[in-house]
Design a protein around this nucleic acid. Sequence first.
DNA 1: GTAGTCATGTAAGAGGTTACATGATTAG
DNA 2: CTAATCATGTAACCTCTTACATGACTAC
Lengths: 209, 209
Amino acid sequence: MSLRHALLATLTAQPMTGYELVKYFDGSVAYVWSAPHSQIYPELRRMERDGLVTVEVVPRGERAEKRVYSINEAGLAELQRWEQAPIPYQSDRDPYRLKVAHFEQSTYEAARSQLEAHLHHFTRALREWEQILADIDARRVSLLRRRLGQRPEEEHEAIIAFRKLAFRGEVLKARAEIAWAEEGLAVLDELQAKGVPLRGEEFAKPAGH
Amino acid sequence: MSLRHALLATLTAQPMTGYELVKYFDGSVAYVWSAPHSQIYPELRRMERDGLVTVEVVPRGERAEKRVYSINEAGLAELQRWEQAPIPYQSDRDPYRLKVAHFEQSTYEAARSQLEAHLHHFTRALREWEQILADIDARRVSLLRRRLGQRPEEEHEAIIAFRKLAFRGEVLKARAEIAWAEEGLAVLDELQAKGVPLRGEEFAKPAGH
DNA sequence: GTAGTCATGTAAGAGGTTACATGATTAG
DNA sequence: CTAATCATGTAACCTCTTACATGACTAC
């Protein structure tokens, strides 16, 4: 139930509409958690039903309305309960590892292409996470500024430190994935230089001789 | 549809029953992919229906039977097609990052406890992955030996190299997570030494003053 | 007027978790 | 005889993805 807690945590900064929350969770640079609007709107309704958020229906123009959600005491208690409960570890599935483990069924070209995409993805991600770290340091993140404005000065250092720590984790992970992809490309180069055949090459050229 | 391809890839080593596949995918040390038997049995039936595997029903004792699955040509073609198709990247959700990002809602004790669990989990995982790497090098993995026995000598080097590369990725990832958890624990120590308050402390002791 | 943004939903389906359920075989 | 292992399923539920759907407001 992490989506619920991601929403609650975001609402501690300020009351927001579903639409505003969607923008935070839907963006290409999703902040720590991502979700499409088809997940967010129903979840907000369920949170309302469960008494974790309070809704204010605000008119917008002549005919339209919007629903502004605020976290309430029960919601804050639930967020803190979740924060203090241990999250159990279970094996996660990584389709990239699975694919690489059986690259002998692929071709050098396709294998290289996948690893290059991996490299590209995490290189880009690394730049983004590092930019976010810099933005946090410079207090350029508007939601963070609003959150700080709500809390006493003495808590600010912790809020900043934990937000940075989370992105720092993504930075370390991105660097590990980059190093891995580079190792993988080196492995491919070496095998190909030795002339080691891959089984996928046959399939790749069904019209070949 | 990675489960399907994980099953197909495993079956390239040798024909197996659902039960044997369950053991490979259900173990605490799941090899690159994991799945419970409730997922594996129905998927094998679907793969049979789709003509990717061939089944031999073998009697077992007097009354019982078992179903031995073999990958066939269509299955191998599908595996190779999947291997050569790019897997798109999408943002993944990490509940540990989310939790850490909002540690100010927790307590020093609970926060430390989560990071220690993180450290413990990935330290253990690291040992396991390194053990597997050593086992592969020493050809102590029975399924791998059988797989090699099926393929010409010239392909062996690639099969070994890719299997190791996959686990090497897990090793690098585990090291990154360990480094992150250690950084996190250091952050907690520093904040606590400075007396920075966390908001969860109030909630943690509702009977307190 | 019209394009872009604001705003909020529903529905089908895939994939995964947990629990329920059953029964034969084998080793002690 | 009894416990462990072999063997194979189903069902309910949750999460997430993708697609379908609608309409008001605002700036040009």
